[in-house]
Design a protein around this nucleic acid. Structure first.
Lengths: 341, 341
DNA sequence: GGTAGCACTCACCCTCTCCGAGTGCCAATC
DNA sequence: GATTGGCACTCGGAGAGGGTGAGTGCTACC
């Protein structure tokens, strides 16, 4: 074994011990807990090298070492081995998710499940409208001049908007519009929709054009709006439990989590990475409130491929292998269930 | 002024000072900050009486007094004066809420607004299905044997469920069922729906009855399910900010808040009280996790009357007058907007 | 390169003391 | 009878001081 290899072993040991104990780990404890076959003094030399390389740091002189974000990064990328779930756990996940009655329920159960499994904050992103296809458009008059537009996607998601008409609604026009819309949109995705919607106006009397145009605009806007992507959280209480993490920054973390925008940006950012499970560690989240947290996500989808992401947020000092495998397991079942229904 | 009156004055002063400073208040500080016209010694006698009556307590000997839950109760019921919002605040509330595009957005904006105004956790309950009327039922086939049932209420709320058929769906039967359902349900509330739905089965071929019955059941279940009531939260980060509140119980509070069931029970419980603004103080919440918090709620509704509740949760040591008026103001605008659209 | 020894550092814990805000009670006063 | 001034007492909290031990870096040695 080369000394480089041993250094990485030492790094792994430090991460594992620190995650387990939450306390800076010293050279003596390291040789005692792991059979490294060398003396503490040697470990100290290795530690000095690791510190030089920026993988570990000392909270203060004469304290043990703590992994840095860079150290966790190396651990995640090169040193960790997956921690598969037990068969019983897998079955429990499957059956719990299969009992869901609709999309909302599936999402709700998934997010609770991840929070439970990881004992951290769970995040589930609703299936993205842009990647799913429209199945049906429903128009419902609510009051003489207001029209409720309901969009239903093939993932079972429902979006709604209200349109205000310039004059009283004509039931016949609404019915024609409904029919036309459904012919135009059925099964199409956003990029293909533009032209179909544009020509739709031609089929109506000039007097009705404002209404038609308004409805079309609403449909387009709804489909285009990133902000309509939603994430659901669970397990925020897990942040406060266990105590010692997050000295005084818990408030900042909660603030960041309440900002859907922050989470959505992070999620879409992570979607770029071409890896099965994406991890953002500490400062890599690019958000001041999440400096002391890490974010583990993976994609789930339906038969057409990736649709959205699920993940878990916890302290940078988290059990990465366990979190990664829990997140991935739930995503798999989620994909299976969405494809099946 | 009778001595009883002064004692209540003292109680009010204690509550106000404690809320402002977060520190036990002593007799000397009291006479200095409030012009009570008597000496500290007199106040001490009054304090002894108030303590005897259970309205205040000492954290430890030789410390000042702190209001008990009972003390806050008296303060809220008899001693506090409403703190009206400024005209600018009112206008800000109104215009912020009026920009909402749909029901979800209205609810979302309301909850953020309350969190912002009270600097506490805000709670908004979605309009209750049981009290709102059905406006429309939409059936959408998703796959050969799956039918998506979408319910739309007159408050603009949308509920969805999937039904699995025993055999492939017949588009004509679905269309007839859609028509019949909409004739049966239009504008009716749950109690009146039962019979209409029951007789609906007679209008179909025996072979189609299972499907019809399944859909009817789903409609009934959806409307009947209490658990389908939903609450939305915002401002949980406010719990952690400011620091000194919640010694170590923050985790428990967050846990309680994550339990929709807990909040819904509390909300429905509070709906029983025949007062404009309901307050639950500390142990009155009947929940161990909320022992150190108070919950201020009020009803909002549409033109038909009360529909659901909005509120704010904060430490028992909160500014009750301010919280109550903020909650009430938002509820009023909410009512106006729901009635108007 | 690995190891043993050694001096040094420094957070943490424990104890002790001091301080002062605040109380309760009592006797004097209005 | 209510109010007040005076006074002894209590006790949490802040601060100082000292001991302890885990942990390090360095150097000489194998």
């Amino acid at each position: 074994m080369s000394s480089d290899d041993r250094r990485l072993d030492v790094l792994r040991a430090i991460v594992e011990d620190y995650v387990a104990t939450r306390e800076p780990v010293g050279s003596r404890a390291l040789v005692e807990r792991h059979s490294l076959g060398v003396s503490p003094a040697t470990i100290r030399n290795d530690m000095a090298a690791l510190e030089e390389a920026g993988y570990i740091a000392q909270p203060h002189t004469s304290a043990g070492r703590v992994p840095t974000d860079a150290g966790y990064r190396v651990f995640v990328d090169r040193l960790s081995t997956v921690k598969p779930l037990s068969g019983a756990e897998r079955r429990a996940i499957g059956s719990f998710l299969e009992d869901a009655v609709d999309l909302d329920d599936v999402v709700d159960r998934s997010v609770r499940l991840i929070a439970q499994l990881t004992q951290q904050v769970a995040v589930v992103q609703y299936p993205s409208l842009r990647r799913s296809a429209l199945r049906h458009v429903e128009l419902v008059p609510v009051g003489p001049r207001h029209l409720l537009v309901v969009l239903i996607t093939d993932t079972g998601r429902v979006e709604q908007r209200t349109v205000e008409a310039e004059r009283d609604l004509d039931e016949l026009v609404v019915a024609r519009l409904r029919t036309h819309l459904n012919v135009s949109v059925a099964g199409r995705r956003l990029p293909q929709l533009g032209d179909a919607l544009a020509t739709l106006v031609d089929a109506f009397e000039p007097a009705d054009v404002p209404l038609v145009r308004a409805v079309v605009t609403v449909v387009e806007e709804t489909l285009a709006l990133d902000s309509e992507e939603r994430v659901v959280l669970a397990g925020t209480a897990n942040l406060a439990r266990g105590g010692t993490d997050f000295t005084g920054t818990l408030g900042t973390v909660l603030e960041a989590l309440e900002e859907q925008v922050v989470l959505l940006r992070l999620l879409s950012d992570m979607a770029e990475d071409a890896v099965p499970v994406t991890v953002r560690i500490g400062h890599e989240t690019q958000h001041a409130g999440l400096l002391e947290t890490s974010f583990v996500t993976t994609a789930y989808g339906d038969e057409h491929g990736a649709v959205a992401r699920v993940g878990s947020i916890g302290p940078t000092r988290m059990d990465y292998p366990a979190t990664m495998s829990a997140v991935r397991a739930v995503a798999r079942y989620l994909t299976r269930i969405l494809a099946g229904s």
